[in-house]
């Protein structure tokens, strides 16, 4: 198992290197990063001074070495807009994004998994139809549209929730629901199909042949096996959510990384964009490693290698 994890960590490090390379060259695709970052009205003298200040007039490999060593210690340079180091600005926004992602994931899990289980235990029942309907909606409704409709209905018309911001405890509910809905749909469908598959497995017949109560069979024999595919999907989805959702954070004016990214792009604040891109990758890769770890804990075939 240690070898398995060393391999996973090695892969992640390689991927991270790839991300840093991409992020570095992203702003140099047009040849001159200065023209990308400066306003169109800047004079040639201002441009030259900017190149000088940012070090863009040095050879590319020197710039890359500089960027790479900086990235390793978390130094992505100063934000052009805020005139202060980029990474702390990102970290400042992290709690809001984490809060949104965690609440969104919890909503998805606490509604999606029970609905999927009930649907799988009783396919064709009313609860199964509700679950499948919700799954279809969750996976097909565009989230920016749903966000606007929810603001219109629940915030403006009914006044149940605040329409934007993060200053009340219930501010998180609407954006988290919109963020979690596609995952909720996916969890309903995945749980349902996994239950249907597992409950007709030979080892479930063995469990019945031992005279176990159906309750025990479902809780112990079925659910442990259903949990395996769920863990991987939850891990991947949580990664997406933590990556910051630009639409949802912007629409709800949620002060997270997604909103910051949207603003940074608008400001052409590339050091900040680069910091967000690299940081998000680190988060997603770390999460993938945790997912694999969780996977190994519940699936002995991975833990002991087969």
């Amino acid at each position: 198992m240690y070898r398995y994890f060393l391999a996973k960590i090695g892969q992640s490090v390689l991927l991270l290197f790839g991300v840093i390379v991409l992020v570095f060259f992203m702003v140099r695709l047009t040849g001159d990063p200065a023209s990308l970052m400066m306003s169109r009205n800047a004079s040639p003298e201002q441009m030259e001074a900017f190149r000088e200040r940012m070090g863009f007039n040095r050879p590319v490999y020197v710039q890359f070495a500089d960027f790479f060593t900086g990235a390793l210690v978390g130094d992505f340079g100063n934000s052009l807009h805020f005139k202060s180091p980029a990474l702390p600005l990102v970290l400042e926004r992290l709690p809001a994004t984490v809060q949104l992602a965690v609440v969104g994931l919890l909503i998805a899990m606490f509604i999606g998994i029970p609905l999927g289980l009930l649907g799988g235990f009783q396919p064709g029942s009313a609860i199964d139809s509700i679950g499948r309907g919700l799954a279809l909606l969750g996976q097909s409704i565009p989230n920016f549209w749903l966000a606007l409709i929810m603001i219109l209905f629940f915030a403006v018309r009914l006044g149940w929730f605040p329409s934007f911001g993060r200053d009340r405890w219930d501010s998180v509910i609407m954006p988290a629901f919109v963020l979690g809905l596609p995952t909720l749909g996916q969890l309903v469908r995945l749980t349902r199909s996994a239950v249907l598959e597992i409950r007709s497995a030979d080892f479930i017949r063995t469990a019945y042949s031992k005279g176990l109560e159906p309750r025990v069979i479902y809780a112990k024999h079925v659910f442990r096996n259903v949990a395996i595919p769920l863990v991987s999907v939850i891990g991947v989805q949580f990664g997406y959510m933590l990556g910051g959702s630009i639409y949802i954070e912007s629409i709800f004016a949620w002060p997270g990384m997604g909103q910051l990214l949207e603003q940074a792009i608008g400001w052409r604040d590339f050091p900040l964009v680069q910091a967000i891109a690299v940081f998000t990758s680190v988060v997603v890769l770390a999460l993938n490693i945790f997912t694999d770890l969780a996977y190994a804990i519940i699936d002995p075939r991975i833990r002991y290698g087969s």
Partner: peptide
Amino acid sequence: ELREIRGGQIGFVFQDPISSLNPVLT
């Protein structure tokens, strides 16, 4: 009542020992 009989008074052995045991339990 049948559950008392199954596994208690009547035991089963199935054909495929690979798929007949739960892979995630010892």
